[in-house]
Amino acid sequence: MTTKHRIATALFCALAWIIVDQLTKAFFKQILTPGDVVSFFAGSLLVLPTYNHGAFLSLGAEMSDSTRNFIFIYGVLAILVGLLIWLLRSSKLGRVEVIAIACILGGGLSNLLDRCIYDGRVFDFLNIGIGHVRTGIFNVADVGIMLGLAMLLLGRAKRGPTSPGSATALQ
């Protein structure tokens, strides 16, 4: 993939995640207030809007505001910049890897946008499960991040392990 194609593919994919995430957040903020719960598919999907101070599963929500904001704004920004540099500089990335990185960038940027607008909080509203076995509350950006991570990990696992000096290790 040429640099131009990597950038175009990544830009399109990342923007798609940002737009869809922000539109779904705006929609549910418009029709629901924190505390409301809407159930779909016999309770398998719940929509319950909330503002999350932490990260995945409220990790870090108990930190001081300054520490939490430093980690979840500047730390996340540093990771996203690192991913962007990897995307721009690595000519060996395949289409799946470029899309995976773009999913992470789009989801991460959309949640970072929330943190900057909503005083360090992210708007979450989705919960899935059966009975008492449920996920934490998340949003569409989180789906993009997790999908991107899964694509990168599965892509690496599919290639199998490489030994130093092998043809695949040199690529």
Rank of each mutant, 00 (worst) to 15 (best):
F123E: 00
H132N: 15
L80M: 08
L87M: 10
I73Q: 11
A150P: 02
L126Y: 05
F12S: 14
I137M: 00
I104W: 03
R121T: 07
L170N: 15
M63Y: 06
T67F: 13
D65M: 10
W17G: 10
F27I: 08
T2N: 15
T162W: 13
M63I: 02
G94Q: 10
Q171A: 13
D65H: 11
F40V: 04
C116K: 09
L88A: 13
G120H: 03
V122G: 01
G54P: 03
A150N: 05
L147D: 02
L147A: 13
G54T: 07
I31A: 05
R89M: 07
L112M: 14
C103Q: 06
T3F: 06
I19T: 14
S44L: 13
G108M: 01
S110V: 12
A141G: 02
R68M: 09
L113N: 08
L88H: 11
D114K: 06
A167Q: 13
T135M: 13
D119T: 09
I99N: 04
D114M: 10
Q22N: 07
T135F: 15
L147R: 01
G106K: 02
W17C: 14
R156C: 10
K158M: 10
S44R: 14
H132Q: 13
F12K: 14
A26R: 12
V122T: 01
F72Y: 04
F56A: 15
L45H: 11
N127W: 01
T135A: 12
L11N: 05
D65G: 06
L11Q: 07
I101H: 05
A42Y: 06
S90I: 02
G165F: 07
D142G: 02
T168G: 06
N111Q: 10
L152T: 04
S91L: 09
F70L: 15
